[in-house]
Write a protein that binds this DNA or RNA. Sequence first.
DNA 1: GAAGATTGAAGGCTCAATCTTC
DNA 2: GAAGATTGAGCCTTCAATCTTC
Lengths: 159, 159
Amino acid sequence: MGIMTDEPEWLDDEERAAWLALVSVLMRLGPALNTQLARDAGVSHFEYTVMAGLSEAPDRTMRMSDLADLSDGLLPRLSQVVTRLEGRGWVGRRPDPSDGRFTLATLTDDGLAKVVAAAPGHVAEVRRLVLDPLTRKQVGQLTRIAERLNEALAPTRCP
Amino acid sequence: MGIMTDEPEWLDDEERAAWLALVSVLMRLGPALNTQLARDAGVSHFEYTVMAGLSEAPDRTMRMSDLADLSDGLLPRLSQVVTRLEGRGWVGRRPDPSDGRFTLATLTDDGLAKVVAAAPGHVAEVRRLVLDPLTRKQVGQLTRIAERLNEALAPTRCP
DNA sequence: GAAGATTGAAGGCTCAATCTTC
DNA sequence: GAAGATTGAGCCTTCAATCTTC
């Protein structure tokens, strides 16, 4: 955060409105997606993201560390989730032959079937909660805003 | 979700871009806020939201059920968090004299001091992660988009 | 020694079941 | 009987150690 200067830096009305509305989305959209996926497919949103990521990779295979980046999760969290998915027979794990430090995760046929079965319902929910309520123009605005925020959220460089 | 019609309903490129960017914000902004508050103030984002809500209520007091609505949390979750806050001496609880079914939660002096101490750092983080990266115009767009999404996320009416 | 990955313990969230007051 | 609130069990996440491979 750096030096705490004497700037007033309080939020004005417009900033406050934006902030309160965004927090509300933040607190409610995540749980809503988890609920839909848990109810209809028996997986969490994070588990779905992991399997969907693998399903689009070459050979349905990725290194754990790359998969962690892709799914916005930390490695310990990913490792435990993959352990769970492995137990259900949806993902396999083995050391990378070219460098034993890496672990390769592969989506199994059963895992792929699971993703394929879950996708339509999930997409429908995304459409209902996020895309349908917005105009086409707002969808474009949202994309640019969210991408800008993701830059600000990028790995905190501390050199 | 209703009837699953034969609509193609897949996401086009623009929709997909918006969705992926929003999910990324969703997965990273929440943890980022939790991390800052935990590190600098020793509270979670939800705990902070609850105490900040009470701090602005008349007599720093609210019914548990109203507080649950305000903080976007379900009642069981709020109850457990308030138990924790009560243990630290930041919130007090007592039955509503006018109707014993309700419970009134009150922010103590210590609790107020805690919020006041935590607020500047939290606001600075909100500014750094959300408001500063956006143009003034985008802040307005974000407000309208987020408010629209919150309507779609409203309590699922099933009459 | 450094990078990738895993494990174990502690804390938080979610849901169903329960209790109390009206 | 219904509404508000609490509790308990199970699962998930988080963080700090630890292990392995290079």
